[in-house]
Design a protein around this nucleic acid. Structure first.
Length: 381
RNA sequence: GCGUACGUGGUAGAGCGGCAAAUACACCAGACUGUAAAUCUGGCGCCUUCGGGCUUCGCAGGUUCGAGUCCUGCCGUGCGCA
C-alpha cells in the first residue's frame, strides 16, 4: 500500500514507461490511465453506461464548481459524489487550484488562498487549502488533490517561484486539514514552471510529506511541447518509483504518449469531450471536423475500425447533420467516440509496455503524432 | 381600370444624399490540453502583389460634386375601391 486507501502495483517497466494498477476503495484502474473529466458532476453528454463502455475506469470531478453549485453539503446529502454521478468506480476530484489560473481575471491570490467572484452569481468566494480539503472530504472522491496554484507557462521565473512557494505551503496545509485519509488519498502537485531547479525543489519538498501519489501540474499551459517533455524528463525521475504519477490536464494523444515515455501513470483532459461537443472527432489519421461540407454524404463511420457505439451505429453524414441541425446527438456521439478513442490508445499503450514494445509503438503508431495542428490525411486526392 | 404601399447581398431585414451597404439567420473555414466552452474566432459581391482595385440595392432615364436613398417612366408584388 502506498497509503491507507490506495494501492499501487507496478507490474513492469519498459524504458521509463510503466504498467501498473491503482486500487482504491471504489475499485481499481489500470495504468497508464486516461480519466475523462466531469467538472460539474457529469461528463458532459455521456451517460455513466457510455463512459463505462469506453473502457474508462476512473473519472474526474471539480471542487470549485461543485462547491458553488450545488454545494458540497448538498452532494453529501445525496450520498456522495459516487452516488451523485452514478459512478460506482474510482473518482478523482481536482482541488480548484486550476481555477486559480484559468479564472485569473476575476481573482486575487493571497498567501492563504484565493478570492474569486463566483461566475454564477458574482458572490465573493474565498478558496483556501483548508476549504478545498473540506469540500473534497465532503464530496468523497477516492483521490483528492492538494490545493495549488497553476501559473501560465509564460509566467516569469520569479512568479513561478512565488507560486511554487504558495503551492508548497498550501500542500502542507492540505495534508494537515485532510480529515479522511483512511478512505481518500491526497496527491501533491509539483509546480515550478520550466525550471529544473524549481521543479526539483518542489518535488523534494512534497516527497517529505510522504503522500500516496504525486502529480505534475503547470504543464500544457502555453510552455510548448518541447518544454513539457523536458520538464517531465527531469521531474519524474525524482518522484518515488512506487507511487502513481499524474500529469494534470494533458492532453493530445501525442502529449500522453510523451508522458508515458517519461514515466507518467495517469492523465486527464477535457479534450475528447469538449472537442467532441464541437464536432471534432479524433481518428488515427488525424482529426475530422464534422461540420466540414466534405462529410455531408460520407457513409463511413467516424473512424474506420473503431468499436465504439457511434462508429457501429451512425454515418459521418448523419452525425454532420446532427451538428448542423443543433441536435444533441451530435455532441453525444462524438464525445462517446473520442473518449473511446482515448481509451483504445491507453489500452494499446499498456499492451505495448506489457510486451516491451513501447519504443516500437512510439515510433510506428500514427496516433503518437496527433497534436494541435494535425489534419486529416487526404486519401486519393 | 383607378388609388395606394413596396421592390436591398443565399434568406429575413436595416439603411437623415457620401457604404460594399446595420443586424440576424444560413453557408464556409479555424480554435479548443487539471471545462465559466453543445463555446469562441474568422470569412461570406468580384479581383488583389493585401496597399488597394472593380461592379452592385427591379429596369431605364433624370437632378446632384456625389443616388440604395430625390424626380419621371416602365416592369413586378401586396392592399383598397370598382
Amino acid at each position: 500500500m502506498t497509503g491507507p486507501a490506495l494501492q499501487f502495483d507496478l507490474f513492469r517497466q519498459d524504458g521509463q514507461a510503466r504498467l501498473g494498477r491503482v486500487t482504491t476503495r471504489h475499485g481499481a484502474f489500470d495504468t497508464p490511465a486516461f480519466m475523462p473529466v466531469g467538472t460539474q458532476g457529469t461528463i458532459k453528454g455521456m451517460l455513466p453506461d457510455h463512459i463505462a463502455a469506453t473502457g474508462s475506469q476512473i473519472i474526474l470531478g471539480n471542487t470549485y464548481h461543485l462547491m458553488l453549485r450545488p454545494g458540497e453539503q448538498t452532494v453529501a446529502a445525496l450520498g456522495d459524489l459516487h452516488r451523485f454521478m452514478a459512478w460506482p468506480g474510482p473518482i478523482l476530484t481536482d482541488s480548484g487550484g486550476f481555477q486559480v489560473f484559468s479564472l485569473a481575471d476575476i481573482n486575487r491570490i493571497g498567501d492563504d488562498g484565493v478570492t474569486f467572484k463566483s461566475h454564477i452569481d458574482g458572490a465573493t468566494v474565498h478558496l483556501t487549502p483548508e476549504r478545498s480539503m473540506a469540500v473534497q472530504n465532503a464530496l468523497g472522491a477516492d483521490i483528492i488533490m492538494a490545493f495549488d496554484e497553476c501559473p501560465p507557462g509564460t509566467a516569469p521565473i520569479e512568479y513561478q517561484q512565488k507560486a511554487l512557494e504558495r503551492t508548497l505551503r498550501w500542500a502542507k496545509v492540505s495534508v494537515d486539514s485532510h480529515a479522511r485519509s483512511n478512505d481518500q488519498s491526497l496527491f501533491g502537485i509539483v509546480q515550478g514552471g520550466t525550471s529544473e531547479k524549481l521543479r526539483a525543489f518542489c518535488a523534494e519538498e512534497l516527497i517529505k510529506l510522504d503522500l500516496p501519489g504525486y502529480a505534475v501540474g503547470g504543464l500544457a499551459v502555453g510552455e510548448g511541447f518541447e518544454a513539457m517533455k523536458a520538464v517531465l524528463s527531469f521531474t519524474t525521475p525524482i518522484l518515488p518509483v512506487g507511487k502513481p504519477r499524474y500529469l494534470m490536464g494533458v492532453g493530445f494523444p501525442r502529449d500522453i504518449v510523451a508522458g508515458v515515455a517519461r514515466g507518467i501513470d495517469m492523465f486527464d483532459c477535457v479534450m475528447p469531450t469538449r472537442n467532441g461537443r464541437n464536432a471534432y472527432a479524433f481518428t488515427a489519421n488525424g482529426a475530422i471536423r464534422l461540420r466540414n461540407a466534405q462529410y455531408s454524404r460520407d457513409t463511413g463511420p467516424l473512424e474506420d475500425g473503431c468499436d465504439c457505439y457511434s462508429c457501429r451505429t451512425f454515418t459521418r453524414g448523419a452525425i454532420r447533420h446532427f451538428f448542423s441541425a443543433d441536435e444533441m446527438l451530435g455532441p453525444i456521439l462524438v464525445s462517446v467516440h473520442n473518449v473511446r478513442f482515448y481509451q483504445r490508445l491507453m489500452t494499446d499503450i499498456r499492451q505495448a509496455i506489457a510486451e516491451n514494445q513501447f519504443d516500437e509503438f512510439q515510433r510506428t503508431d500514427p496516433r503518437c503524432g496527433l497534436g494541435p495542428t494535425e489534419r486529416t490525411k487526404v486519401v486519393n486526392g
